[in-house]
Design a protein around this nucleic acid. Sequence first.
RNA 1: GUGACUGUAGCUCAGCUGGUAGAGCGCCUGACUGUGGAUCAGGUGGUCGCGGGUUCGAAUCCCGCCAGUCACCCCA
Length: 422
Amino acid sequence: MIRRIKGTLDVFGEQACLWRYIESTFIETVRSFNYREVRTPIIEPVELFVRSVGEETDIVRKEMYVFEDKGGRRVALRPEGTAGIVRAYIENGMNRFGAPQKFFYIGAMFRYEKPQAGRQRQFHQLGVEVFGSPSPFADVETIHIAMKFLKNLGLDDARLHVNSIGCPKCRPSYKDALKKYYSEYLQELCEDCRIRYDRNVLRLLDCKVDSSIAEKAPRIQEFLCDECREHFVKVCKALDTLNLKYTVDPKLVRGLDYYTRTTYEIKVPYLGAQDTLIGGGRYDNLVRELGGPSTPAVGFAGGIERIALALEKKGIVVPRDILIYVATAGQDDTYAAAITVAETLRDRGFCVEIDLMERSLTSQMRYANRAKADYVVMVGEDELREGKFTLRDMKTGEQRKLTLHEMVEVLEKACKPLHGDS
RNA sequence: GUGACUGUAGCUCAGCUGGUAGAGCGCCUGACUGUGGAUCAGGUGGUCGCGGGUUCGAAUCCCGCCAGUCACCCCA
């Protein structure tokens, strides 16, 4: 038996419905803010990620799928979405359309990691990117979208954590201060932390082995330059205006090098170690660093698998279409009539199933019940003779004989509350 | 990449100290020659994750591999 590659997922049935529900809720939400879709390639030059995500990050150092194509090009499966979109923005000269430019995307990402629940090698992200606005209102709009999206899904218990990690002007002085502080504790640090000390000082803050040293470490807020501090204050104020609850988390450091100023994460308290549903932040220098015009930007990415897990954990179910099963009882001529009935109902927008197994009426009823059909229409000899069909409400067991026209009317009336008002 | 645990029917699991497999649920059919959910009867279903070793004999013991789960690393 050929089996799927480690860390990949086959998704179908109920679960696929859940994914589609997540995606369509996301699209609905971003459309209401007038964001436009962007689709970029899954394969990109390795160099793109080395220069954007960062040479020293784990993503680039050990998690990237890299190969050489037949033309000798060094190719990577994208480990995240932002880099490709920034590349596309520059390559297509999107800045000529003015600012801001607001995009959303949905797609597969790849990272070679040890899989566990909520962490796949092929995983799926949805996200937004805003180009051209240096304003804290842009940061907050992306957060607003993220929170509203989760709320629309029913995840109103998601918790927002925000921080500012400064800019190239003020961050170095903070890093120096951290190094100075930690240099006195080098002996007490865990093995990983000694590596972090040299490679990425900021990461020392969220060590899980021993947090007591980090507790007393200098806080970045005290090192922010005036511009960064003001920016952060405005972000917090705007969040208050929108009534979005948040926690300022000075230890919130993100793993990608391109972030400046605002960083944020949205977590849910019941998913174990993989509890971050959405992560994002501002990246004011990335467009320029990749060769484009100096363009501030901000965005987030959310993990579809994790959001799906959260919804499952909370027992949130996807609203289902009304299902009508057309059952045949009798000979071949009833089947012909049943098809016509089914098709008429489909043309009216209903979701209609008909027997494909040539089973007995009893079996068809069993099937309809199992498929959670809301109504069964029975088409048999009697119905053909009378020109009226039997409509059975599977919930109440009530049934009546109706002409096709009457049946459509009854069903449309009955389904209206479930389809919403229109 | 590191550590720990797990892997028996579609699903949840039982199978004691080695004697080549069971239950519940599900699914199919019937009781019910035009009616689902309840009940009853029958039926379908498994190279015991894969490979090797020990043994007269392995689902059971040993080793390796694969996959999953949990934590770390990191992140969505």
